[in-house]
């Protein structure tokens, strides 16, 4: 599903945070990537989601090499991958209601009416309903907002889901609930997962295999 080979990426060419890293996620596989904070695993997650152009290395997504990142990637390629970020506060446009937030990718791709039912079903699956969907991010808790962000990531039925420290800010029960939603989705759609995190116990329980992020000296 995803092949990263010899990726070097970062924010200044002289000091990249990811150096020469290779990684493969097979179709339907759940891979955990374990590393301490600040080691560059979030950058790698952004590269894998076609959101950050690496300085060197190649990304092969669903059998095709990736040529463009961010807006340069064709829409159909971008939406193959769903992303959930660590901090739901920053990952949600504060002006949208949770309902609009979940349905935002549908509007962006012009499939709003087609996906309206799916948006409702997903909101239900992540446990959001009624009054909560009419609220805006500042009026809900971190846990509720992250539930909405997960529903948004699943809306376009991605074949690969990338969870970048999805549960780092959440309590045990919300963590378990969100992981259960992800696993239900994966079973139903046979999707692959790249779960990035620092919690060994969680990743071991969640993923098929867990890899240590190679720490650069």
């Amino acid at each position: 599903m995803l092949e990263l080979s010899h990726i070097t990426a970062g924010y200044t060419p002289r000091a990249p945070v990811v150096r020469d890293l290779s990684l493969t996620v097979a179709d339907g596989e759940a891979l955990g990537l374990l590393g301490p904070s600040g080691c560059g695993k979030s950058t790698l997650a952004r590269v894998a989601a076609l959101l950050h152009r690496p300085y060197a290395g190649t990304v092969v997504l669903a059998g095709e090499p990736v040529r463009g990142f961010r807006f340069r990637a064709p829409r159909a390629r971008r939406t193959l991958v769903g992303v959930v970020f660590q901090q739901p506060r920053l990952a949600a446009d504060p002006r949208l209601t949770l309902r609009a937030l979940i349905a935002d990718p549908a509007r962006a791709t012009g499939r709003f009416t087609e996906l309206a039912d799916r948006a409702d079903a997903l909101a239900d699956a992540v446990g959001l309903g009624g009054d909560l969907l009419r609220r805006r991010p500042p009026e809900v808790s971190d846990g509720q907002l992250q539930r909405a962000c997960l529903a948004r990531a699943l809306l376009l039925r991605p074949r690969l889901l990338i969870c970048d420290e999805m549960t780092a800010m959440l309590d045990a029960s919300t963590t378990a609930a969100l992981v259960a939603v992800v696993e239900d989705y994966r079973r139903e759609h046979d999707a692959a997962l790249l779960a990035v995190g620092h919690d060994r116990v969680l990743l071991n329980r969640w993923c098929d295999s867990v890899r240590e992020f190679p720490t650069t000296p």
Binding site: R46, L51, R78, F85, A92
Partner: peptide
Amino acid sequence: RPFVDAAISGGASRLRVAAR
């Protein structure tokens, strides 16, 4: 902000990210 990343990943065009 990551919410722009999320929008791009959700298939939003440059114009849509700017306008919305």
